[in-house]
């Protein structure tokens, strides 16, 4: 297991380096970094000064060396806008996103597993068709549209919930509800499909021949086997919650890493953008390791 994680870490490290190289060269090769990093109205002198200060007149490879060197020592530069270390700014925002994603994903997981399993048990029945329709619609709705419709209905018309910001529990309801919909729709379908497969498997036949009751057959025999593909999709969805978070955080004025990244891009605070990339990529890597661990926990065949 340990060697597995080590191997996994190594290959992810390579991926991470690849990503950094890509972003670095893209930012350096597509025009003048000074223009990217400085405000639009900056004068020619300011740009020249900026270049010298950041060694932008050095050859590209030397610049890359410097960049890698500072990344290795954990120095991701200063946020130009906030005059603080970029990493601090990102981590601060990241905590918010992490909470948002963790709460949403937990709710999605529980709801999707229960609904999907029940739908599979009586596949073709009313509940199955109803939940299939709901989950399909859920998987088809653009989150930004849902967010603004929710604001119109719950914040403006009914005035039950605040439109944006943080502060109280009420502020969390709409973002979580909006982020919930798509992953729920997708995962319900996967759970249902996987459970139908598991319920028609040979070992379930054996359990029935043993006289095992319906409850344990669904939740003990079938579910644990059916969870394997579900976990993979859950991982993908958890990662793409960060996608959704960009939109939802922007619309709801939620101070997470997605909003930070969009703001930083629009404000040309490039060090923050790079730091945010690094932090989210590491977070996704950790999550992937956790998923692999969950896999091994669930299925003894993977452990060996």
């Amino acid at each position: 297991m340990l060697s597995f994680i080590r191997k996994r870490s190594l290959s992810s490290l390579i991926s991470l380096i690849g990503l950094l190289v890509l972003v670095f060269f893209l930012s350096r090769l597509t025009g003048d970094p000074a223009a990217l990093f400085l405000p639009v109205e900056a004068s020619a002198e300011m740009k020249q000064q900026f270049r010298e200060l950041h060694g932008l007149n050095d050859p590209l490879l030397v610049q890359f060396g410097h960049y890698v060197g500072s990344v290795m020592t954990g120095d991701l530069g200063e946020s130009l806008r906030k005059a603080r270390p970029a990493l601090d700014v990102v981590l601060e925002a990241f905590i918010w996103t992490l909470w948002l994603a963790a709460i949403t994903m937990s709710l999605v997981a529980v709801a999707a597993i229960v609904v999907g399993s029940l739908a599979a048990f009586r596949s073709g029945g009313f509940f199955d068709r109803f939940s299939s329709m709901i989950s399909l619609i859920g998987a088809s709705v653009p989150d930004f549209w849902l967010a603004i419709v929710a604001i119109v209905v719950f914040s403006i018309q009914l005035a039950w919930l605040p439109t944006s910001g943080t502060g109280s529990v009420l502020h969390w309801i709409l973002p979580i509800a909006v982020l919930f919909v798509r992953p729920f729709g997708i995962i319900v379908q996967v759970v249902r499909g996987s459970m139908i497969g598991a319920l028609s498997s040979a070992y379930v036949k054996t359990a029935r021949a043993k006289g095992v009751k319906a409850g344990p057959i669904i939740f003990v025999h079938a579910l644990r086997n059916a969870m394997l593909p579900v976990i993979t999709v859950m991982g993908d969805q958890a990662a793409s919650l960060l996608n959704g978070a960009v939109i939802v955080e922007t619309i709801f004025g939620f101070p997470g890493v997605g909003k930070l990244m969009i703001d930083s891009i629009l404000q040309r605070d490039f060090n923050v953008v790079l730091a945010a990339i690094l932090v989210t990529a590491i977070a996704i890597f950790i999550m992937n390791v956790l998923i692999d661990l969950a896999y091994a926990l669930l299925d003894p065949r993977i452990r060996h």
Binding site: S12, L19, S240, N243, V246, I277, F285
Partner: peptide, 15 residues
């Protein structure tokens, strides 16, 4: 893996 290890929307935004 490089492409997958990062939320696609963010890559798109940056690029």
């Amino acid at each position: 893996d490089v492409i997958m290890s990062f939320p696609s929307l963010l890559i798109a935004v940056i690029v």
